[in-house]
């Protein structure tokens, strides 16, 4: 568990980060909390000759809720999210999700930016960001640009972020209605066997909007448009939930691992989604 030798860079500003990225290209990687990248380096599964630590870069922190928009700097930790009264009120699904990520020690270090940018299908935040239709803010040598969370993930560890870009923040409209993030895991610190993020709106007993995303059931997070659509216009009764679950099953593509075979994961995904919808509806 000893990494290969690497150069450690700790720039003070984004210009410094981009300069190192430009200079070393593929050989450089930025690190936020480091709780995914450092283990990969220690296992020698990631070869990072130049490691750029973002801890000292100005302007990457901060949680703001203004004009109906939530914005989280990339270096906001999961603990910061759990600890924020503002977020607990504006977007409680973030707190519910963060509390199910790893353990308190990891959550003090793990960041929203690292969690979404790494592209690990096991991470919880990417699915949640897709559920919330979040926007990812990137900066690179050619300036800033944004990418929708729903367009960001290509395959495991492959994202729309270019090698010389840094993810600086995520933002999304203050979510409306009921919410739920339910995760089945084997133990504390584990990735999901199946997890679902649901945000839905109830008006006069009818679901008027629903967004559903699943975690660790494909090589990317899965935003299931069809599952959400199956709820809209219904009273989220048993038939509607069954339809949503069926639709979701058409969108996921889980792989067998130590958590179990595909058949089990598909069943777990169904059960977890049903429970998440019921929870969200009860809160709507």
């Amino acid at each position: 568990m000893i990494p290969a030798a690497f150069e450690y860079h700790r720039p003070k500003d984004m210009a410094g980060v981009l300069a190192v990225l430009t200079q070393y290209g593929d050989d450089a990687r930025v690190m936020a909390g480091g709780h995914s990248l450092i283990p990969m380096m220690k296992l020698r599964m990631a070869d990072v000759p130049h490691l750029i630590d973002l801890q000292s870069v100005e302007g990457l922190g901060g949680i703001s809720v203004a004009d109906g928009v939530v914005r989280l700097g990339a270096m906001v930790t999961q603990h910061d999210i759990i600890d924020s009264a503002e977020l607990a009120s504006a977007a409680p699904i973030l707190r519910e999700t963060s509390l199910q990520i790893a353990d308190p020690q990891v959550r003090y270090m793990g960041t929203i930016g690292g969690n979404v940018a790494n592209g690990d299908p096991g991470n919880d935040m990417p699915g949640l960001m897709q559920c919330l239709d979040a926007t990812f803010h990137l900066v690179g040598p050619d300036g800033e640009r944004t990418v929708a969370a729903r367009d960001f993930y290509e395959s495991a560890y492959m994202t729309a972020r270019e090698d010389d870009e840094v993810l600086t923040a995520v933002s999304f409209a203050v979510p409306q209605g009921g919410y739920g993030y339910v995760k089945q895991k084997r133990k504390i610190g584990d990735y999901a066997t199946a997890a679902a993020a649901v945000q839905l709106v109830k008006e006069n007993g009818v679901c008027t909007a629903a967004s559903i995303a699943m975690t660790n059931l494909s090589d990317t997070p899965v935003h299931s448009v069809a599952a959400g659509d199956a709820l809209v216009g219904t009273s989220v009764d048993d038939a509607a939930i069954k339809a949503a679950v069926q639709a979701m099953l058409g969108d996921i593509d889980p792989a067998q691992d130590n958590r179990g075979p595909v058949e089990f994961k598909r069943h777990a995904a169904s059960v977890i989604l049903r429970r998440t919808i019921e929870r969200a509806w009860s809160r709507a």
Binding site: D103, K187, I188, G189, N258
Partner: peptide
Amino acid sequence: LGQEIAYDEMGNVKTGTLMDFFLPTAWE
């Protein structure tokens, strides 16, 4: 409830890290 050293048919250890090898914490 879960702790095992499992091998695949090629003799590869499938549970070589604490992600897959179950070591309970206060949570469990």
